[in-house]
Design a binder for these strands. Sequence first.
DNA 1: CTGAAAGCGCTTACAG
DNA 2: CTGAAAGCGCTTACAG
Lengths: 344, 344
Amino acid sequence: MVTMRDVAERANVSIATVSFVINGTKRVAPQTRARIEAAIEELDYRRNVVARALASSRTRILALLHPDLEARPNATVIQFVMSAAHGARERGYDLVLWPVNDDEQMSHLLAGGLVDGALLMEVRICDSRVDRLVESRVPFALIGRTENDDLPYVDIDFATTIDQAVGHLRSFGHERIALVTQRTKAAPGDEPGRIMRAEAAYLDATAALRRRVRRPPAVIAVEGTSAGGREAARTLHDDFPDATAVVLVNEGASAGLVKGSRALGRSIPDDLSIISASTTRELGEMIEPSLTVMAAPAPQLGRLAADALIDQLEGVQDTPPHLLIPCTLVPGQSVGPPPEGRRR
Amino acid sequence: MVTMRDVAERANVSIATVSFVINGTKRVAPQTRARIEAAIEELDYRRNVVARALASSRTRILALLHPDLEARPNATVIQFVMSAAHGARERGYDLVLWPVNDDEQMSHLLAGGLVDGALLMEVRICDSRVDRLVESRVPFALIGRTENDDLPYVDIDFATTIDQAVGHLRSFGHERIALVTQRTKAAPGDEPGRIMRAEAAYLDATAALRRRVRRPPAVIAVEGTSAGGREAARTLHDDFPDATAVVLVNEGASAGLVKGSRALGRSIPDDLSIISASTTRELGEMIEPSLTVMAAPAPQLGRLAADALIDQLEGVQDTPPHLLIPCTLVPGQSVGPPPEGRRR
DNA sequence: CTGAAAGCGCTTACAG
DNA sequence: CTGAAAGCGCTTACAG
């Protein structure tokens, strides 16, 4: 292995000077620099990142913490992960995957000093992992939000997204719109923030409408699987037969909802309009009929989260970043006017 | 930050002894050990992994190299990644994501000394990245195979998988079976090994049959997208109208092939049987009708690849691992007998 | 069974 | 503009 010492000897300088030109941390006379650069080139020297990390107490490694990475993460989650990894890499950082559920284990990992910062996904409104993160004094950024707005985060703007979804359906004439969200193993009220915010946004966006047509909210929570989607179709059919449209915030259940509805004899979109919020356009294309989706800004948000964290680490920024980006409407074939008979 | 020195002082021993008990690398008198353990507990000491890495020249970090991680990796790839990350973590290793296409950049990263070993995905038959890996002297394992069988690998057994898929279709009476694979940007002959092996296996498995019915092979390569799938449906319809069944080795095109075929008036499975090989059962369930799939053993293989690499790093194993696991047939509703008129 | 000490390959005040 | 040297927090022969 060729070390900095080898380069220094060949260029006839001290290792300090070599370090200065490699890092650009101090002025070095042009010809000294040239000698060093030549030596580096000739020896094909590459700085050892571990030694650098120990000496500078900066590893340039970021952790990505996600509880469900083992299960089957949906396409949107993957986009977050991949874009965060790319964003990090472009700024000279590496991303390690930490599929950790346990708070205790998380603290242990954090305390090991491997990572300079952490990105946390699937954030809950009250999330003990965030407390651990704060305790650990490792800088972090959230992909999602807790109720504490002071922490740095990057999140999907569910309020705007759901509002637009509802607006889109209303523009077709729908007045009875249900919401299908995701059921998790979490205690009620402790679900990922995304679920709670989507529900709140739905209640908001449909409030005036519901008042007018005198109907209670129609909210269904099912597993994020095909089976969950079919369950939602049945519940919708049995318990909310007058609903003519659905806003879905449950990517994994999308296909099942469509299949289940059709199995119950309801055609999409003639009998039921569906809009799947916070997913990928690829998922929409896979389903028949093509789903109208609100595409999640995951490819941007993952990178923005990495950038926000790195800015924080490098002291580039003054104030904790709070980024909120709505999903983008991508029309498919799953939304149409409500059936005549059901229109009120 | 509490260091080993702090622990040593509190326990009244040298830091060497502390190191010995933490690593279990040397016998230590029971009561000395107890004192040290107490001190560790009281100070909530956690060994610094960076210092350890520098001193021991082992980082316990593994790199996962995948060229297409930025694009949209399919569900199977994700299963590989996640199970590899989990397998590594369980053995005390971390996995960093290196979404790198460029050979040069790969060599740079490898030379930095951050990782003890690497896992390479999307391996081509002749893969220059493998040469770089060998040059770099960083131990590695392949997920996939080159033509050089001496390297350690873990791979899907495409020969068996395709053979079983063809056998399954034949048991329903199909005699004219097409193959749909994936088109990549790679030069011909330089595609990922999986594609070439699948094609070879198809030619093998259908050889006798084709000889009997006097028909040439029917192989179609399309993009791994919904559009690609629709293109395959059209090509099948136009160029191979007598094919009554398809084996698909193109996860991303599955949904498009079904939608495209139906759009051309061919019902599945009445007019065309489809079996999607090397994918996830979840994908099969999403599509209507539910696809018969050969589920990839990705959740096992990712972990096995990590294990193989770690065994190699720790000198646990003698011979380079060569693991080949076939996919598992999961019947859906996309395979049935061929239409009467077409049966020959 | 335990310790003193060298060393891993860098960075970074500090001095000149 | 350049260098000598301390130090990052561990591991690991070596000696006793």
